[in-house]
């Protein structure tokens, strides 16, 4: 158990096994869709966790990148005649470029100032999407063409379960590799103390920017997947509430924890489905659960449980 929790590669292996086994247990396509939603959100949260948990930089605007990825899938085929895979790459490139351009000035800010700056950036994206109705369909959203690969129409919950599941495993591998590289150590040193890192000769601005761009890419890809899974996009995919939701997922699961990103996403995606039994008390229960969990497990679910297990003799 001890080694399992300390070896991130084993952990990714375990995630892969869960992704492979789950379809045998899930009773219907609806559950496959929910699982796919968990994976898609988890990809975005993984990126955000790299930024927040490892580099220690808050972002309240990641839905902006999510939205760019999603709308790329809707707009690319219609206006540029691009196939879906090219639109996905294009959307990712746009997100990365935006993160790169905005990141430089924004990441000089600290704490709450950074939070507001990223929030503003995310809101700008959402506003453009919602206001340019002639292109984006405005608040009512627009339809997304189904992806066609080699003559195969990529649609349906099961297909997307596998695509998002495998992508999540790859994304987790990328993050694990990154945090165990010199880059990862640099990021963590920034998290602990920016000034100390600078004294050690680490190019703080560059590494922060790197984490920001990577997290934007993850969010953008997740957005594209969601658009393809749904076949429809609305401005809520870029909205402030989604930004907050992503942060809640990261914190609830555990900052700086890869498994935590997935657990956090799973809880926030599954909970609203499970809570429908409470009818009008749904939101009361959801709010109470978030508060109670974080009071009892302030470092997030996964790190807290891991600490618990570690404390016991193995």
């Amino acid at each position: 158990m001890r080694r399992f929790l300390t070896s991130p590669f084993l952990l990714v292996g375990a995630v892969a096994v869960v992704v492979a086994i789950l379809p045998m247990i899930l009773p219907s396509n609806f559950y496959m869709r929910v699982a796919a939603l968990v994976y898609i959100n988890a990809i975005a949260v993984l990126g955000l966790n790299l930024l927040m948990g490892f580099a220690g930089q808050v972002s309240l605007g990641h839905a902006g990148f999510f939205g760019i990825g999603a709308y790329a899938m809707a707009l690319g085929p219609v206006y540029l005649g691009l196939p879906s895979w090219a639109s996905l790459l294009g959307g990712t490139a746009v997100s990365a470029l935006l993160a790169f351009l905005v990141g430089r000035p924004i990441l000089r800010l600290n704490g709450y100032y950074l939070a507001i700056a990223t929030l503003g950036m995310g809101m700008l994206v959402a506003m453009v999407i919602s206001n340019e109705a002639n292109i984006t369909g405005g608040p009512n959203g627009m339809e997304v063409q189904r992806m066609v690969l080699f003559g195969w129409r990529v649609a349906g919950s099961v297909t997307w379960y596998w695509i998002s599941g495998i992508s999540l495993v790859i994304a987790a591998l990328v993050v694990v590799n990154l945090i165990n590289s010199p880059t990862g150590r640099a990021l963590r040193s920034i998290h602990d103390s920016e000034i100390a890192a600078r004294v050690l000769g680490i190019d703080v601005a560059r590494y922060k920017l790197l984490a920001f761009v990577i997290s934007a890419i993850f969010a953008s890809i997740a957005g594209s997947y969601l658009a393809l899974l749904d076949g429809f996009v609305t401005p809520t995919t870029a909205g402030f509430l989604l930004s907050i939701e992503l942060v809640v997922m990261a914190v609830l699961g555990g900052l700086g924890s890869i498994l935590g990103s997935i657990v956090g996403a799973a809880i926030l995606v599954i909970l609203p489905q499970a809570l429908t039994v409470f009818h009008e008390y749904e939101h009361v229960v959801l709010g109470a659960i978030i508060v109670v969990f974080l009071i009892l497990l302030p470092s997030g679910i996964v790190p807290a449980i891991a600490a618990l297990i570690r404390r016991r003799p193995a």
Partner: peptide
């Protein structure tokens, strides 16, 4: 709208 889609499924 995204939640609506999940419930529709």
């Amino acid at each position: 709208a995204n939640k609506a889609r999940t419930f529709a499924t």
